[in-house]
Amino acid sequence: MRQATIDRLKAQDILASMASATMKRRLKETLAGYLYLLPALAVLAAFRIIPIILSVRISLYDWGMAGAREFVGLGNYIAVLQDSVFWKSLLNTGWYMAFSVPVQLYLSLFIAVLLNQKIKGLGAYRTIYYLPVVTSIVAVSIVWKWILHPDRGLLNYILSWVGADGLRWLQDPRGLFQLLVGDRQNLLPYALRGPSIAMCSLIIMGIWKGLGYNIVIFLTGLQNIPKTYYEAARIDGAGRYRIFRNITWPLISPTTYYVLLMSFIVAFETFAQVWIMTGPPAGGPLSTTKVVMYYFYENSFELWRLGYGASIAFFAFLIILGLTVLQRFVLEKRIHYG
């Protein structure tokens, strides 16, 4: 009986010391874990987390170059919503997305499908299409500005081969739809005029620059589709279109989703092109290329209306978030994960 009690006490002792050892190990593990995280956490705290919190505060003030002037509550947000230039910039970004994203998506998928036909010289083609991707946006903007020159530009020269009149690309504020329906007197309401010719120039360049990236992503996606599916379909006598519609398109949908999301974000963040190619003043002609990112930059770092800029930034964030959620929501059901 006594022995049993002693044994039990001993056992408790051992258990307790084991527990404390476990505790100690856990504590050590926790400390070590955070120690490893520390460098990354410190940088992120200083240049992401704290700034994001500060940004909320700044957006609630009339904040100039010298600091906070006056607490305005939601005043900046309300002012942004009442600012016609903000809405115009949103419309401009919207046009940019509406044209560049789908064109780029279908064109890159089309080329990727062509490249996936056991074609000779695949490597060479891929390299060529990929060149603009590794080139800086600043460099390509400078080159394209020259190509789009109204009187001396290469593009207008090439158009002249087919007898087309050249356009004053980056200087032309007329909307695309306006031009198509032949509206000379600006009768169409602004929102229906479509992207200006200047904006179309940026869109064309954006497509050229981003195409290769999407092609490479699609090509990888296509190569991951098991060949047996295609063989089975061919034995069943399915035509090229039906194979694409019923095998390739559904099986590539996760890739399509990724490409779509990336293209939307890249399109939304259009900035350098506007800074370099348009104007002066940049964002022109008639503010038709003033995209949201540029409007943010102009308010924050040219006019030093920091509170106002911060409010624009939060609307931009909401829009990106909204687009992401919407895409997930709408497309999730259509994505086929193999």
Partner: peptide, 29 residues
């Protein structure tokens, strides 16, 4: 490779930070 409380939450926080566009943190930075 470490197990510690708050690990998953911290990781989620990192991923969430990736979603925030640059204009939001640019001015205070």
């Amino acid at each position: 490779r470490f197990k510690f409380p708050g690990r998953e939450i911290t990781f989620m926080l990192f991923l969430a930070l990736m979603m925030i566009p640059m204009p939001v943190y640019l001015v205070p930075s």
